[in-house]
Write a protein that binds this DNA or RNA. Structure first.
Lengths: 155, 155
DNA sequence: CCGATGACGGTATATTATAACATCGGGTGA
DNA sequence: TCACCCGATGTTATAATATACCGTCATCGG
């Protein structure tokens, strides 16, 4: 269910191809921001990206980062984690999809899952209500299996 | 599926009872903030609450509002809409539950639904992954049935 | 060449949220 | 009664997140 993360180079190559196919430009900044987001261990905030961008760009300002992030979001190359105000690389950008996120508050780790069960039930709810979803936000905040084992046994 | 919203007085009464049962204090500020959130047409931001609070409190500061909101969230009397940075009264505070929200970007309306299908599929995903959810965030951003009809027919 | 468009730089500021510390008030036990 | 604790509140300042706005530049199609 959990999707394996591709290597950075792989991701960048896919991104390049996708943008070409779609006739949109993966410019230097956009590419750099994508790289920073995907290279990160976990989710990264916009200002964290901004900081890391300082190493390769002269004096970047917030709009620079946000513009790139907006583009990458539109292209489905990254996701925004609303509950964390942070961004994370998409595990499988090649096809459009609705993802769900398991966010561990202990270790900070995030798993992107793509559960057909969840997608189906969401779709059914939409059919019942006539609501048309543009962007689904499904984020489960809690404790991952690993951290549950590591946790203090009693207390 | 959509839950009818109770009247303001009803809500306040229920809140009072619940807090008594739980041995927590629904103080004047907390009650006032709950009232403001529930009286609002749709979701309200913290600073919007702050503004409205000025009418009944001398010179309220952000922490006043956020503290009250935190309390109300803990007690399940309101919900936070992460994707809007806004708060909304809980439609059915009497029992613990996981809600989902349909957020219309056209009219700004929000429906709270409680779909067993969605809950079940989320639970299944948790069982598969061993993840333990403390707080689920399920927000569908899009267009409500009403606004789809109202929308420009072609374009 | 011209005009349109999209990307970018840069400044300022809006918006959302919390840190830190002082105070107050009500209950509890000595 | 008094000392004490603790939860709630007041107050100031600031952190963190996000966008408005405007000018410039490059590219592309006509």
């Amino acid at each position: 269910m959990t999707v394996k993360r591709s290597s950075l180079n792989e991701i960048l190559k896919i991104a390049e191809i996708l943008c070409n196919q779609r006739g949109v430009r993966l410019t230097v900044q956009r590419r750099k921001v994508l790289e920073l987001v995907c290279a990160a261990e976990g989710p990264v905030g916009a200002y964290e990206i901004l900081d890391r961008l300082r190493e390769s760009v002269d004096n970047p300002a917030p709009p620079t980062v946000y513009r790139a992030l907006d583009f990458l979001l539109e292209q489905g190359l990254i996701h925004k984690l609303e509950s964390l105000h942070a961004f994370i690389g998409c595990s499988h950008p090649s096809h459009p999809h609705a993802s769900q996120f398991l966010i561990c508050s202990d270790c900070g780790g995030v798993s992107e899952i793509e559960s057909s069960g969840i997608s189906n039930s969401l779709r059914q709810a939409q059919e019942r209500t006539g609501f048309k979803t543009k962007r689904p936000v499904v984020e489960l905040l809690g404790t991952c299996a690993q951290c549950q084992r590591t946790a203090v046994p009693k207390e």
